[in-house]
Design a protein around this nucleic acid. Structure first.
Length: 690
RNA sequence: GGCGAGAUAGCUCAGCUGGUUAGAGCGCAGCACUCAUAAUGCUGAGGUCCGGGGUUCGAGUCCCCGUCUCGCUACCA
């Protein structure tokens, strides 16, 4: 494999409606930063870009709720996120934002190119429209009753109570959140990307070119999508917040996130290039550039399917070399959730643990969800700090520096003859260096960090084996050799820890007085510190974290958990309130419903479904089949012989290929459970309800 | 229901294309040491490798069936 000329490294654009938390860091930003720092140390040309994703309906809705403008929302979070990253030391070359003029131009140009090449399919469809406000409604602008769980404040794209993803037309009693009125369906035109046309090519690319480099979780997910078959997707939306569609007669239309956010990587590159007088094309269009996207698993489709298709459709761009997506990080047994405030926020961490950025980097790297979901607990955080960073790494350096200062006034003693032991220990340095390089280049940051710590373990063992504090009185010459070796190990640590623990590396380099020797090529060398060199005073690299600090963090989490539960109770209570009365109907309208009592003769699960039962009813008049979405609440066998209320003259409808002739009526509890309605005494089938 | 990823020591996780007594870190127990933030080193205990079949001279590793967890997806009047 030939060495790339330059690396374009991207980290997922954080959405500017909330702060950054440890899940984001562990999933994308810290691995990306380690990779970027490492490649820079290898003297490779690196461009590490990121920025805030500031468009989309979620931001406008939030703005509306808080009574401020979308601009105010994104300004607030953009600067909060940008400052957090910079204070934490994520070494972006540029942190841009998608509200920037340059980004709007860039994505519009991109859209225009695709449009001119005839890539898009224009298609009219019916979308909900708010008449009082005279605008089309984004999915999230519509609320209504969830058809699945009955939650009456479900959004048009998702019910937040049961998690089902929805389309707005599925909602029962849809309502516009703008005007509160019932929206009407109205025709609108959009530009679709016919992804199905790229299916074959994409499959070829993934199977042939990406098979070996993609991680199992990423490759599997991609194949899963390809198996299901790609479908055309709208690349534009009716919304007034975002990048305008650069065509005539496209008022009120913006580019959808697929053509907005990922282009943000490109516009960030342009912004950086302008400032540094470089050619942005080198980073996106030259085949000797390696493009690597660091993301979380929620973004796999985006970066492995849709973005490559868009880049390919454009024609001039290189495709990503790798997409090292991580799984999810859980927190104290629960999923991290921004909306439920179950998270450790970066900006709060930096306040509570000032000067301990590297501790968080270390812990999150050691538990990075590289192959499966993993778990952050404060207890584990404390243990890793106290027994790994303090006791193993910090302590080794401290022993070495203290002994050198004590015995030799801080002057690096000259090494004498090496025994097997010294040779072994010193050769381990270059071995560890190679291992770390290999592992980082294969995106195995957790293992790479382990190999770094291994050096400190080797150092501790070396001191324990040689016991210089015992030897000093009888044989100070030997002690000179020993401490010389221990100092070489420390110097190597300072160099090799740079990608992982940049602040500590600086601190250690200062202590050893070797800030000029930190080049990566120097790692593995065994005579970095030469005789007349004097090191500085000992200073602790890490400090212990006490139980009280951990308890405070856990208490903080529990407090937010309580707040959540309280909020949840309120929500349930609101849901428990009766639904508003429906509009008046005439007697004739009511009389049009043919509601009857029927007896269930047979019931069975509809194959390949989770909720559907196929039920045979004796209606008195005939025997008929009804398909009902109640399988979650009833065992089929238990239904046989039961009487039910049913709507006999509902227009038949084919469900899963079965003709459903009618609808069984159910009573629904506020929590969404379904219950049968039956007469209190057995009645003949066909008895009329009315 | 379909698809994908997981299920390995108390905890967090490694185990590549199948090969001798299954590994690491942390935790735990004992011993040694005292230069060091009671830190370090050594030794040890601890595992039906989710369950059940099968292929093989040999399977944690391959095949089939099932259970559970996470994710994506379908159905939902």
């Amino acid at each position: 494999m030939s060495q790339a000329k330059r690396y374009t490294i991207t980290a997922a654009l954080p959405y500017a409606n909330g702060p950054v938390h440890i899940g984001h860091l562990a999933g994308a930003y810290i691995p990306a930063d380690v990779f970027a720092r490492y490649q820079r140390l290898r003297k490779r040309e690196v461009l590490f870009v990121c920025g805030s994703d500031e468009h989309g309906a979620a931001i406008t809705i939030r703005a509306k709720k808080e009574g401020i403008s979308p601009q105010q929302i994104i300004d607030k979070y953009h600067s909060l996120i940008e400052n957090s990253f910079s204070q934490f030391g994520i070494s972006f070359d540029i942190y841009h934002r998608t509200s920037a003029e340059l980004h709007h131009q860039t994505s519009q140009e991109f859209f225009k190119t695709l449009h001119e090449k005839g890539v898009f399919v224009e298609r009219e469809s019916e979308q909900f429209f708010d008449e009082p406000h005279q605008q089309f409604l984004a999915d999230r602008y519509i609320t209504g009753t969830c058809p699945k769980c009955g939650h009456d404040a479900a959004y048009g794209d998702q019910c937040e109570k049961c998690g089902t993803s929805l389309s707005p037309t599925e909602l029962i009693n849809p309502k516009s959140t703008l005007s509160g009125e019932v929206p009407v369906l109205k025709k609108t035109k959009h530009w679709y990307l016919p992804m199905d046309q790229y299916q074959e090519w994409l499959k070829w690319w993934i199977v042939n070119e990406q098979r070996d480099s993609l991680k199992a979780n990423v490759y599997g997910q991609c194949r899963s999508w390809l198996e299901q078959g790609l479908q055309e997707r709208a690349m534009t939306r009716d919304l007034d917040w975002g990048v305008k569609v650069p065509l005539p007669n496209a008022e009120g239309k913006v580019l959808y996130v697929w053509l907005d956010a990922p282009i943000g990587y490109i516009s960030a590159t342009k912004a950086w290039a302008l400032k540094h007088d470089k050619r942005w094309e080198d980073y996106w269009q030259k085949p000797d550039t390696e493009l690597v996207h660091f993301i979380g698993k929620d973004n796999i489709v985006f970066h492995c399917i849709i973005f490559p298709i868009i880049l390919k459709a454009h024609g001039k761009y290189i495709l990503p070399k790798n997409v090292p997506a991580n799984e999810f990080l859980n927190l104290e047994g629960n999923k991290i959730s921004t909306s439920r405030n179950w998270a450790v926020w970066l900006h709060e961490y930096m306040q509570d643990f000032a000067g301990k950025n590297d501790v968080l980097r270390y812990v999150l790297l050691s538990i990075a969800p590289e192959t499966k979901d993993s778990e952050f607990t404060w207890k584990d955080f404390q243990t890793r700090n106290n027994s790994e960073l303090v006791a193993t790494l910090g302590n080794f350096v401290n022993r070495t520096v203290v002994l050198t200062n004590k015995y030799f006034e801080g002057f690096v003693p000259p090494a004498g003859e090496f025994t097997n032991l010294e040779n072994q220990v010193l050769s381990a340095l270059s071995l560890q260096k190679q291992k770390i390089e290999q592992l980082i280049e294969h995106y195995k940051f957790r293992d790479a960090l382990y190999e770094l710590m291994e050096i400190a373990r080797i150092g501790n063992k070396y001191l324990a084996d040689t016991e210089p504090w015992k030897l000093f009185k009888q044989d100070p010459e030997l002690v000179k050799t020993i401490l010389n070796v221990a100092l070489q190990i420390s110097a190597n640590l300072a160099i090799l820890m740079q990608p992982f623990l940049p602040e500590t590396a600086q601190k250690l380099a200062k202590m050893l007085n070797i800030t000029g020797l930190l080049e990566w090529e120097n790692a593995g060398k065994t005579a970095l510190l030469k005789n007349p060199h004097q090191i500085g005073k000992e200073e602790l690299l890490f400090s212990k974290i006490e139980d009280t600090e951990i308890e405070a963090q856990i208490a903080k989490l529990n407090a937010s958990k309580k707040t959540n539960e309280a909020a949840h109770l309120v929500e349930t209570a609101q849901n428990a309130t009766l639904k508003p009365a429906k509009n008046t109907v005439t007697f004739d309208q009511f009389a049009g419903m043919d509601i009857r009592i029927a007896t269930i003769k047979a019931a069975q699960k509809v194959p390949k479904t989770q909720k559907l039962l196929q039920i045979t009813l004796d209606t008195g008049l005939d025997e008929r089949t009804v398909v009902s979405g109640i399988a979650e609440f009833f065992e089929p066998e238990s239904l046989v012989g039961k009487q039910v209320c049913f709507l006999a003259n509902l227009a038949p409808r084919a469900i899963k290929g079965i003709n459903s002739q009618g609808m069984i009526l159910m009573a629904e509890s506020p929590s969404g459970e379904l219950h049968l309605l039956a007469p209190q005494t057995i009645l003949p089938s066909g008895s009329v309800v009315g």
